[in-house]
Design a protein around this nucleic acid. Structure first.
Lengths: 216, 216
DNA sequence: GCCACGTTTTATGTATACAAAAAGCTTGAG
DNA sequence: CTCAAGCTTTTTGTATACATAAAACGTGGC
């Protein structure tokens, strides 16, 4: 693996996981030493992070890890609604119901199995599988790229809201319905299920927000 | 201006204007000499171009100017419809009818003034002003960034289709209607006007396509 | 005591030298 | 004549040295 790829992957992981919280200064020499690479590949990594919107250049002061706060959540979800509705439409039109029927059943199982003690990461992974299946069926590289860029921001946003098992169960039911809508081949229904799910999701985030902790 | 910014701006301009047609190999040393900068800033420029989708890395063979063909036009317009509908909705909800009423009148004038001899660039600039006004009123930085990235590809696509004055006049009328829909403050109407315009635009591109010339 | 200016320090921006990997070509054998 | 293996050439990837600009700090004047 190239050193620049390694630096990019590691920095990105640290940013998404909040190991490098918003506002952190990413000095070139400092990070180059930490990651064991030279400044040249690290610069390229920072360039890519900036293009992703995970970092912002701050003239004379290096690049900072970009801010994430609930102030942006409405804008983020407006874009998400536009993109994911389109993707769901495309997936429904693709006419490949098999994988979605299967995913719907797995979401059904998840909605009943979810306990307060269970690991939410399992659920996030299942949701990720549905996203991936939609992307593949929609088969639109431009849309896919836009969604990929968006999902990075959404992953960072998770840290800002409590997620209780009750909401996760409801979310699983909504996902199951979305999967079935796609399997049915009805693009309008698939888009509607998407819009509904995103509305509920945003609603939950707003009403269960953590006290402000990121102000960089 | 930084050398890397200069290299990026120049390369991007050349790619969009087809001075560097799809498939062109962008060798680092070659382009660095042509643009009068060193390899380091040029590399950064190529990195950004790749992130924009204007170039694709080709392992061992340098980066190539990315392909543009009518094969992608459907995907591109699907994304465009999703994004611009959302932007039009946002602009309508912003409740700032003034600029859009003015733009509508300018489009009215343009639809009558357009002669076979007139410069189409004037019209494209006017359309660009509407896009900008929509972006500003929608006031969603994430959406705006996605649209900016998309419009680069659309600008390159223009070269693939004849545009006759008749279609330009019709397009002007559609733009005028869109502007009025936004001015009226009705988000559903604004989205509908957008969808209709994009449908007609795509329809025209497909039926007036130039013979295949880009296959890289 | 406070403000402004200059110096110092530390950061990024650039260039170049070197290393490594990959593609294409040549050459040899089958 | 064809295929493959090895070499050559060209390309990218990395490191480091140097230039430059900005920011922080100290110092001097007011």
């Amino acid at each position: 693996m190239k050193a620049s790829d390694k630096a990019y992957a590691e920095l990105r992981r640290d940013i998404v996981s909040w190991a490098l919280p918003p506002g952190t200064v990413l000095g070139e020499v400092e990070q180059a030493e930490r990651l064991g690479v030279s400044r040249t590949p690290l610069r390229e990594a920072l360039s890519r992070l900036t293009a992703d919107g995970l970092a912002v250049a701050h003239r004379g002061r290096g690049v900072l890890v970009s801010d994430v706060s609930l102030d942006h959540v409405d804008d983020l979800f407006a874009l998400r609604r536009a993109l994911e509705s389109e993707a769901a439409r495309g997936a429904a039109l693709a006419g490949r119901p098999g994988p979605f029927r299967e995913l719907a059943e797995r979401f059904d199982a998840a909605s009943e199995a979810l306990e307060p003690t269970s690991d939410r990461n399992d659920y996030y992974q299942l949701a990720g599988e549905l996203d991936q299946a939609i992307d593949e069926s929609a088969a639109n590289p431009y849309l896919r790229q836009a969604l990929t860029g968006l999902r990075v921001h959404l992953a960072r946003l998770r840290r800002l809201s409590h997620d209780d098992p009750q909401r996760l169960r409801a979310s699983a039911r909504e996902h199951a319905q979305l999967a079935r809508a796609i399997a049915s081949g009805d693009p309008g229904l698939a888009a509607a299920a998407t819009v509904l799910h995103l509305h509920n999701s945003l609603d939950h985030i707003r009403s269960h927000a953590l006290p402000k902790e990121a102000t960089a």
